[in-house]
Write a protein that binds this DNA or RNA. Structure first.
Lengths: 183, 183
DNA sequence: CTTGGTGCAAAACGTTTGCAATGGG
DNA sequence: CCCATTGCAAACGTTTTGCACCAAG
């Protein structure tokens, strides 16, 4: 609980800093050297394995699993040990370099905390997802807080449901083929 | 995918039946015999292991993990095999007797589908949760659908965030003590 | 030179599956 | 009597941990 609470404190601290637009915690990581600078600044050593994680995340166009990162950019056999990848992703989360999200049942997916936070919506039918800026969800968040007193965040666990086309598909299936419940 | 889609079709079919308030699919399971009646009606045999699962879920005041169910009501060593518990929970979901939700990182939590659907909000700081009737979230759902085209459901994956008191605690911590990042 | 990070192996965790034995309908 | 269901064991995918070695600072 103590560790967990520290994690959350760090997470929410970073989040509020971003939301409020204050503080240096997110100095726009867009290349390896700004990432290594952050690491050193926060007391982390810069190793080959760590550079590799950053490179993989920079090269990716979306959040990656630890296994994908371990396989390296070329996609061949493990380039870095998966245990180290996990340890490094954890270390990077601690300093606000990386965030991870759980989209569905599979492995957690990690991304650089490039330009502030991202929040996610995902479709449980087609498994596709959408990343949006936190502001886009502020109205939803406000409504939830007024109704339930909860301050929702969809950064770590997304909004789950049906995307527009899957919703339409389900409507069709149940709207046309079995309108009034037969028996 | 095929299996997954059938699951979802069944799930959404059941959901729409509940939402529309039509059909017999949820005959208010409040005791073992109504549960066994449903099982037989849907072609499932009634075994000791299955009765045990139902009894555990009836005795519980909230959703339970498979392990808790396997331990039986007295809480002693495994009373029923955990593999059978998983198989039975799956079978029960298929006939609409049980639903499960993923609150945070731990094991899935299972509950009888007593009186229609439940949707969840959970706090990632204190791990507490709140179950609400789907109607209470319709306004939120509508807003999300208008903004993003996603039809959200918080039955299987909840709304995650901070409950009122944890939100207040975090506000205090960062409103007052915030300035120096505590490495 | 010292401490933190690495690779490897093994374990932990929640969940699923294969199989022979059994008990429900 | 038959076949669905069981218990056991083993495998699964993801993540964590213990430990001896190595390399960043």
């Amino acid at each position: 609980m103590s560790e967990r609470e520290m994690d959350l404190a760090a997470e929410y601290g970073a989040a509020s800093a971003v939301t409020a637009g204050a503080g240096p915690p997110a100095p726009a990581i867009t290349d390896v050297s700004s990432a290594t600078a952050l690491m050193r600044e926060r007391g982390l050593r810069v190793s080959a394995a760590r550079r590799l994680v950053v490179e993989a995340l920079l090269a990716a166009d979306g959040p990656m699993s630890a296994e994908q990162i371990a396989e390296g950019i070329g996609g061949r056999v493990p380039c870095s040990d998966i245990a180290s990848v996990y340890r490094n992703l954890q270390a990077f989360e601690d300093i606000g370099l990386v965030r991870h999200v759980h989209l569905g049942h599979g492995p957690g997916l990690h991304a650089l905390a490039v330009a502030g936070e991202r929040e996610y919506l995902t479709c449980e039918r087609c498994a596709d997802y959408r990343a949006v800026a936190p502001e886009e969800l502020d109205e939803v968040r406000d409504l939830i807080e007024r109704r339930f007193g909860y301050r929702a965040r969809f950064t770590h666990f997304p909004i789950v449901g049906l995307c527009a086309s899957c919703a339409a598909a389900v409507d069709d299936a149940f709207g046309l083929i079995r309108p009034p419940q037969p028996q």
